[in-house]
Design a protein around this nucleic acid. Sequence first.
DNA 1: CGAGAGGTTGAATAAAGTCAACAAACGTGG
DNA 2: CCACGTTTGTTGACTTTATTCAACCTCTCG
Lengths: 279, 279
Amino acid sequence: MYLSQTSSTKRYNDAKLSLLKSGNSSVKLSRGKLWSTLHDVCELLKINVQSYSSIMNEDMLFQHVKFKSGQRVYTIGQPFEMVYLVTSGFLKTIINDELGNEQVFSFPMKSDLIGTDAIHMKHHVSEAVALTDCELIAIPFDKLTALGRRHPNVDLAIYKILSKELTSKQQMIGTLGALNSEGRVARFLVSTSDKFAQLGYSASTFNLRMSRQEIGSYLGLTLETVSRTLSMMSQAGLISVEQRTIQIHSIDALRTMRRLPPNKTRNKAKAAEAAKAAA
Amino acid sequence: MYLSQTSSTKRYNDAKLSLLKSGNSSVKLSRGKLWSTLHDVCELLKINVQSYSSIMNEDMLFQHVKFKSGQRVYTIGQPFEMVYLVTSGFLKTIINDELGNEQVFSFPMKSDLIGTDAIHMKHHVSEAVALTDCELIAIPFDKLTALGRRHPNVDLAIYKILSKELTSKQQMIGTLGALNSEGRVARFLVSTSDKFAQLGYSASTFNLRMSRQEIGSYLGLTLETVSRTLSMMSQAGLISVEQRTIQIHSIDALRTMRRLPPNKTRNKAKAAEAAKAAA
DNA sequence: CGAGAGGTTGAATAAAGTCAACAAACGTGG
DNA sequence: CCACGTTTGTTGACTTTATTCAACCTCTCG
């Protein structure tokens, strides 16, 4: 049974937490719903919690929510209450500009925390759409901050997660601002590969869950350019493409494939000049 | 007397905070250095602190540091200890890629907090360079988090600041991903104007402190394209340009000047189709 | 006053977008 | 399980856009 977006934000309060004491097992099953302990959440977020015992005694469980492909976890304008931690499946976060044109911002997957861009507002400023069936842990933000106040490690962890997101957005800005289409697609493949590797999946063969259109929107390119670039890389022997399945043959080539369109030669001359001046 | 980047991180600990009790005045002068109270910091950050009295009794002062035009507040690789709140002047945050090519990420000014992208690391991942002489409040991050732990409003404020930054980066990604050169320059002018207005300065006439090169890097364009676009807007009567002084005649025109290169007509058709299907 | 950095403008080139046709995969219902 | 229509992906020809290279101008600051 899948929850709709409206009911998912309510459901948390329904349950009687007192009935469910935290034990050793990873995930609790109760009344057909899954619950995660704070321990699970921290592990998924790769939070290094030193004082495990004190924190893990917290009488706190977080509910799992499921969404079917195409469903929205949250939408623009919806009241902000929760952040969500992905445990399985793939999503996209988007905004829709004035005329239905959607802009993709990220492709969250396992261990990504989403909804954090709404913290400073009362309402969500973007929306999260499931690209496949997926499962998330719903974390009431006020509960999280309350926890952070009691446990220094937790609040520092939240800061770090937000800061990390900031850096990743910054890298995205760098990608869009300084790389041509080839470089952008290469970097997209590399970072996707890195992400899969980090989660213990194959770094060389994986299935993209998004369309060329969505990749294009994410990279600031048209779907045709994405398609062409992938074909080109395939012809160059760097990758194999079969629909949404990508096999990477030479990750190193892709990694160094970041050419800089702006002022290539001019800045080189400048750099040489500066080097000479310094010597 | 201006502080160099290396000494600026040390200087904080030198001073004897106990000598300086917080009073009513905004800024304390001691031994030729300026100090701000937590109250000042919160005001600059536009933090709505409800329980003023309890927080403001904190025996906590933050040192002002000055930098001359061209100096670096922090550099890549430098240990992360402080975040900095701008009180006057203009800066840029950048990274340098493999071959001296610099990428501009933001142009911080009064009331902006910088250095937050390094929270999740031991070291800074970008660098902040003064575009003009400027003054910042150095805030030791560990002191800030300690404060946040004691005062719910403060820790929430930190979350909000980080989240707000996240949204602004996201908007930048939108700008770079979906707008052509014209739209990017227009949006740059509009958001600069908004920022000035918000600080109480003129929204229609202001002085850009950065070069065309730096604007270009920020917007993912070449300096020539920036120059040409400004000339075009000037000829169209939307703005006046005189070196780095910009006068905006029709902010509304600039605000709506966000054309979308990708799939202009196609998505319109789709949207119409979808609307029909919904009805 | 002169050197150098920053800014503007023009002409040629390269890159990505647009439009269109086609092919392949998917999913739905008979 | 197959046939059908729909969606998604590929490729080509052409157009538009922004970059590149170069010349020239204009401020600023020793």
